[in-house]
Each structure stands twice: as structure tokens, then as C-alpha cells.
């Protein structure tokens, strides 16, 4: 049988044999749970009872729950604040770091260190930074220069940006490295040509660097968006009892899902929220790919 195959068929056969491993992996670990989750979201399964089909009741409950809408809005606040701020900072750093030759490797390494640090440890250190005097670093500094203390994590308005700050800071190293690689990939000849024509630095940035960075930017936007929409570690470790307080001011959708599943044991309701998050991530990713792919 095998002997009668042509060389192309044999190649195809072996390609599929090797491909089978990741395909099986994806089916078992990714696709099956996704479809199973869709089913669970239509049941009232909790850790304490067998699942029973209840139709769309979980979704109905979810859309009527003010807490769900609050965390839904929070999730987008993380994205809307985190994405532009982090990209702006990381691009600025990468842009100037690209020009630095003195101790370039060391500086680059230093920017990358936070990315390697455990999010939990980092979140706790930042949590202490935000405390009031006498133990909080930031408030000690403010008091030292005669400024009033800020509540930071103890304020419904300041808490979300305060939780976001370490997340941005930690992700910075990764974004800088990717931007640097993107910047290095732009052929030097374009810049030479521009300089010969006497074009200013600003124009070079807008007309050459940024357009040619588009693939890099696209990659970072997609990856970072998903990251901000799935923020969890920082919130869980920086708020009281990991509840995303005060008064749900910092609770993202992922934490709400976690609470429904592992505090209330309401797996059906948690899965229904997961399906919403899945759809949101899917739509955002597709939209971003479309927008940035077009000429």
C-alpha cells in the first residue's frame, strides 16, 4: 500500500503524521473544552450538583446583573487606558534606546527584568507602595514634598489606574524588545535616502518608521489587547481578598468569572461569562487584523 504511493503522496502522508500531534493537541486541549464550555454555559452545574440544562437562564441572569456590566466596563477601561499608554511609552523607550550605543545591552536588559518577575510578587510590592504613610512609598514621597496623600487603591476612581500601572510596567520590557526588533528590521537605506533629501526627523518618524513598523505594531496591539482584557494577577493580588474592590472598582471580567466558579462554585454562570469574554476577544482580534491589514 505505502509502496505504491508517489513521492508527493508519501510526503503528504508524513506531513500529516507529524501534523497530527499538534492537531490532536489542539482538538483535545483547545477546541473540545471550548465546545464543552458552550454546553456548560447552558446548564446550572455547580461543584455541588450534577449539571441540568436550563437554556439561556445564565445569560439572562448575567445581562440583568449590574455587577456584570460594571466588570464588563472595567475590562474595557483596562484596555482603553493600558493599550495606548503602554504602546506610547514602550515605543518612546525603544525609539531612543535604538540610538543609544553606550551600555545598550544592559539598559535593554534592565527594561526586560520586570517582565521576568513573578506578577504576584510584583503586585504585592506595588500594593505596599500605594499604602498611606507611614509605610507607603508613594505617599511618603508626596508627604515629604508637602503634597496631600492620595488614596490610590482605596479610591473608587484611582484604584483602576493604580492596579494597571504595574501591569503596564511589567509588560514594557516585552513591548520594547519587539519594537527594537521592528526598528532594526527597517532598512538603513530608507533613512539614508531621506537624509540626503533633507527630510526632518519628525517626517522620517511619521513617513518611514511608523508605516514600516505596522506589522510590529499590529502584533503588539493584538497581543497587548488580549493581555489587558485578561488582566487578573495584579487585581487579584492588589485588592482586598482578591475581590477587585473597593466596590468592584477594579474587578475585571476574568476575576468575576473566577469568583463565580471558585468562590460561588457556579460553573454554569462562570462559563456563560467566559463565552462572552471569548466572543469579545474574537471580535476585537478580527477587527484589529482587518483594520491594520488594509492599505
Amino acid at each position: 500500500m505505502y509502496d505504491r504511493l508517489t513521492i508527493h503522496q508519501k510526503q503528504a502522508f508524513w506531513a500529516w503524521v507529524f501534523l497530527a500531534v499538534p492537531v490532536v493537541f489542539f482538538i483535545v486541549v483547545r477546541f473540545y473544552p471550548t465546545f464543552d464550555a458552550a454546553w456548560i454555559s447552558l446548564t446550572n452545574w455547580s461543584l455541588f450538583r450534577e449539571p441540568k440544562f436550563i437554556g439561556l437562564a445564565n445569560y439572562k441572569e448575567m445581562f440583568q446583573d449590574p455587577v456584570f456590566w460594571k466588570v464588563f466596563a472595567n475590562t474595557f477601561k483596562y484596555l482603553a487606558l493600558g493599550l495606548p499608554v503602554s504602546l506610547l511609552i514602550s515605543f518612546t523607550v525603544a525609539y531612543y534606546l535604538d540610538r543609544v550605543r553606550f551600555m545598550h545591552g544592559l539598559i535593554r536588559g534592565l527594561y526586560f527584568v520586570p517582565y521576568l518577575t513573578t506578577a504576584v510578587a510584583m503586585a504585592w510590592v506595588w500594593r505596599w507602595f500605594y499604602q498611606p504613610v507611614p509605610i507607603g512609598l508613594f505617599n511618603d514621597a508626596l508627604s515629604a514634598v508637602g503634597l496631600p496623600q492620595q488614596p490610590f487603591l482605596r479610591s473608587v476612581d484611582q484604584a483602576l489606574p493604580s492596579v494597571l500601572a504595574p501591569a503596564i510596567w511589567a509588560g514594557l520590557g516585552f513591548q520594547v524588545i519587539i519594537f527594537l526588533a521592528g526598528l532594526r528590521a527597517i532598512p538603513e537605506t530608507y533613512y539614508e535616502a531621506a537624509r540626503i533629501d533633507g527630510v526632518g526627523a519628525w517626517t522620517i518618524l511619521w513617513e518611514i518608521t511608523l508605516p514600516l513598523l505596522k506589522p510590529t505594531l499590529l502584533f503588539l496591539i493584538v497581543i497587548s489587547s488580549i493581555g489587558f482584557l485578561r488582566i487578573f494577577d495584579q487585581v487579584y493580588n492588589m485588592t482586598v481578598d482578591g475581590q477587585g474592590g473597593p466596590l468592584n472598582a477594579t474587578r475585571p471580567l476574568v476575576l468575576n468569572i473566577y469568583n463565580s466558579a471558585f468562590v460561588d462554585y457556579d460553573m454554569g454562570y462562570a462559563t456563560a461569562q467566559t463565552m462572552v469574554l471569548f466572543l469579545v476577544l474574537l471580535v476585537i482580534t478580527i477587527v484589529q487584523l482587518r483594520l491594520l491589514r488594509s492599505k
Partner: peptide, 13 residues
């Protein structure tokens, strides 16, 4: 959590 929220509403809400 209901207790914590109750205190937060009084304290900062």
C-alpha cells in the same frame, strides 16, 4: 464580601 462592600460605601462611597 457584603460586609466589606458595606464598609467601603460608608468609608469612601
Amino acid at each position: 464580601q457584603i460586609w466589606l462592600d458595606m464598609i467601603d460605601r460608608i468609608n469612601i462611597g
